[in-house]
Design a protein around this nucleic acid. Structure first.
Lengths: 99, 99
DNA sequence: GTGATTGGCAACAATTTGGTTGCCTATTTC
DNA sequence: GAAATAGGCAACCAAATTGTTGCCAATCAC
C-alpha cells in the first residue's frame, strides 16, 4: 500500500531526501541513518513494492530513484477526497450524467 | 503519524466514507465493516491521534467527522516533495535568502 | 422501570513490522 | 590475485499492530 509505505518515519525521511530527484545507492541512503544496510535494503524493497521508487542496477550498486508519478498518484487521491468534500464531485457527476 | 494512519486499509475506507463531510457515530461507521465495534473504536482513536478526525459527544453517541485541514496538510507535504523535485523550492529558497 | 443500544476499558492472542546478525556472491580497486 | 565494498538471502528476535472477548456505565425508547 501507498500510504503505509510513507507511514514509517525512516522511509518518510528516505523519500524526503530522494525528492531532489537524484538516485542514490542503498549504501549511500543508509549512510546518514542509524540502522544497518540490510534494514535499509528492506525499506527500499517496501518502497519499491509500493511503487514509490525505481531500482536500476549498475555494476555492483543498485541505484534507487523516487518515482514522481507515485507522488502525483497520492496527490490525486487526496484531491479526490477534498473534491468529494466540496460536493464538487457530486456536481460533476450530475453534469456528466445529464450530458 | 499522518500517513501511517492512512496506511491501514480499514482506516482508509473509513476516511473515504467520511470524506462526504457528514459525521457518523462509531456504530454507524462499523455497520458496513466486518469487524467488531471495539475494533472500529480503536481505528477511530488512531485517526483522532493523527489529527485526521474530530470527535463530538452527543448523548450516548460519539460523532466522528473528518478534519479537512488534515487532508490539506497531507497535500501540502506532497506538494513540497514535488516542488523540491522541480527545483522550485531551491529557487524559492535562493530568493528568500537574497531578500 | 426494563430492555436495548452506544461506547469505554482491560486482558488476551495472532500476525506483522522493524530490526539484528551471519554468511554468501559479485564487482571494484590496488 | 588480494582486499575491500555493495548488496542478497535466511534465520531469528522484540515490539507494535490488529483483532478478539467479556464486562461495565450511560443513555435512549417503550
Amino acid at each position: 500500500m501507498f500510504f503505509a509505505a510513507l507511514g514509517d518515519p525512516t522511509r518518510l525521511a528516505m523519500v524526503e531526501r530522494l525528492a531532489d530527484g537524484r538516485p542514490r545507492s542503498i549504501a549511500r541512503i543508509g549512510a546518514d541513518l542509524p540502522i544497518s544496510r540490510q534494514a535499509v535494503a528492506k525499506h527500499v524493497e517496501i518502497l519499491h513494492q509500493a511503487g514509490l521508487v525505481d531500482r536500476r542496477k549498475s555494476g555492483r550498486e543498485v541505484h534507487v530513484a523516487l518515482r514522481r508519478e507515485a507522488i502525483e498518484e497520492a496527490r490525486a487521491w487526496l484531491d479526490a477526497v477534498g473534491a468529494q468534500w466540496d460536493g464538487t464531485l457530486a456536481r460533476l457527476k450530475a453534469f456528466t450524467e445529464q450530458a
